[in-house]
Each structure stands twice: as structure tokens, then as C-alpha cells.
């Protein structure tokens, strides 16, 4: 604003000088008037320019702010990418751990309760199951489903059938086909309610329901699970999930 005041002062000076010029008849009227006109035009331009400079300063500040925001956005994006990568790694590791744990548990279960069925379980049967499950571990969920379904058809009475059925459901879950996941896991719960996989299947149903946005359904399933299998590890997880919300 001080600039504008200065400009005004200069204009006044200019007019004063012009007037003085006329009084002393140093140059004719016409020329003086033209001189004043030129001066006024220039002052107008300068005034506009000073105004624009104020605008420009605001724009430049905005530009530098925009740059700061862009840099911050990029940094955030970078952190986000790193986090997603870390979560993907954890996901995979967790799945590997779970599959591994399940394999070991199954061996224990078989060793304890299935002495008489052990004879029935042919090597080919185990082989077929392991092959299909290997597909799951390799993230080939489509072929895992296919292999496990074939296994179910060939060995419907196998002691591995509940596990196979459970992994079919889980593979659909991994494929984000939550409706099929629920349908497949319901078969586990309905057909082998006493099997150790039944509470796991219910937990998976609840997760699928949550993914589909059916929060109430998910909570119902979790409550049912806690009521029905209070001593299962799955019930522990269900309790934690219920407490979280």
C-alpha cells in the first residue's frame, strides 16, 4: 500500500510540474496536455501493475504451498506403499504359518483318535490331499479348489474330508468370492459339527460376512461360535473380534 501512496505522490508531482510548465509557457498547451495524458496512462499502468504484483505474490505463495503439499503427498504415498508391502508380506507369512500349523495339528489328531482309520487312509489319498493343498500354499487358489473338490468326490468318507472342505471355503475367501466361501464353510459346519475344523469354518464365515458388509451377520456368527465351541482356539479369536467393536 505504501507503493500506491508513492505512485500517487509521483502523479501529483507530475501534474504539478505540468501545470508549472504551462504557466511559464515553456511548451504549448497541446503538447502539455498530451504529456499529462501520457503520464496518466503510464501511472494507470503502473497502478495496475502494482495491484497485479500483489496478486502475483499471493499466487507464488500458493504455488510454493502447492509444491509443499505435492512433496508431502509423495512422502505419504511412499509410506503407504511400504506399509501395504509389509502387510502383504505378513499376510503371506501368516497363511504359511497357519497351513503349517494345521498340517501338524492334523497329524496329532490323527495319531490320537484315528488309529483304526489310519489303515483306511491310503497313501494315494494323502498324496491327493497334499497336492491340492500345495496349490493353496502357492497362492493358486483356483487350482486348489479344483483339486480339493476332486478329492472330495474321490474320497468322500476320508478323515481328511472335513479339512479339504474347509480349505475349499478358505480358497474362495482368498479369491474374495465371499458368498461361495460362506456356502462352502457352511457345509463343514453342517456335515462335521464335531470336527475341529467346524469352529474354524465358522470364523471364516464371519470374516466373509464382514467382507460383504454384513456386520450384524458376522457378529451373530461369532456369538454362535463362542456359544457352541467355547473351548476352541477359534472361539478365543471370536471373543477378541466381538470385543473390538
Amino acid at each position: 500500500m505504501r507503493a500506491v501512496a508513492v505512485v500517487r505522490g509521483v502523479v501529483a508531482l507530475g501534474i504539478l510540474l505540468a501545470a508549472a510548465g504551462r504557466a511559464h509557457a515553456i511548451f504549448p498547451d497541446e503538447e502539455a496536455r498530451a504529456g499529462v495524458r501520457r503520464l496518466e496512462e503510464r501511472v494507470g499502468r503502473i497502478e495496475a501493475d502494482v495491484g497485479q504484483r500483489a496478486d502475483r505474490k499471493a499466487l507464488l505463495d500458493l504455488l510454493s504451498e502447492l509444491e509443499t503439499v505435492r512433496r508431502e503427498m509423495a512422502a505419504l504415498r511412499g509410506q503407504f506403499e511400504v506399509l501395504v508391502n509389509r502387510i502383504d508380506g505378513l499376510d503371506k507369512r501368516q497363511k504359511d504359518l497357519y497351513v503349517d500349523l494345521d498340517t501338524r495339528l492334523r497329524k496329532l489328531e490323527q495319531a490320537g483318535a484315528e488309529k483304526e482309520t489310519a489303515a483306511r487312509q491310503s497313501a494315494a489319498e494323502t498324496q491327493a490331499y497334499e497336492t491340492a493343498l500345495a496349490q493353496f500354499k502357492a497362492n493358486n487358489f483356483g487350482s486348489a479348489i479344483q483339486g480339493l473338490q476332486e478329492f472330495m468326490k474321490t474320497y468322500p468318507t476320508s478323515p481328511l474330508a472335513p479339512s479339504a472342505q474347509y480349505w475349499i471355503g478358505n480358497a474362495y475367501y482368498a479369491l474374495r468370492d465371499y458368498k461361495s466361501a460362506i456356502a462352502e464353510q457352511q457345509k463343514v459346519v453342517a456335515t462335521w459339527p464335531e470336527h475341529a475344523k467346524a469352529p474354524d469354518a465358522m470364523l471364516n464365515i464371519a470374516s466373509s460376512q464382514a467382507e460383504l458388509g454384513d456386520v450384524n451377520g458376522a457378529r451373530n456368527t461369532l456369538r454362535l461360535l463362542v456359544g457352541k465351541y467355547p473351548n476352541s482356539p477359534a472361539a478365543e479369536q471370536a471373543k477378541q473380534r466381538l470385543a473390538r467393536r
Binding site: 512433496r71 509423495a74 509410506q79
Partner: peptide, 8 residues
Amino acid sequence: SDRGGSPQ
């Protein structure tokens, strides 16, 4: 690209 704040 440095879209994530550093060249990657």
C-alpha cells in the same frame, strides 16, 4: 519414479 517421495 519418485512418486513415493524417493526414486524407486
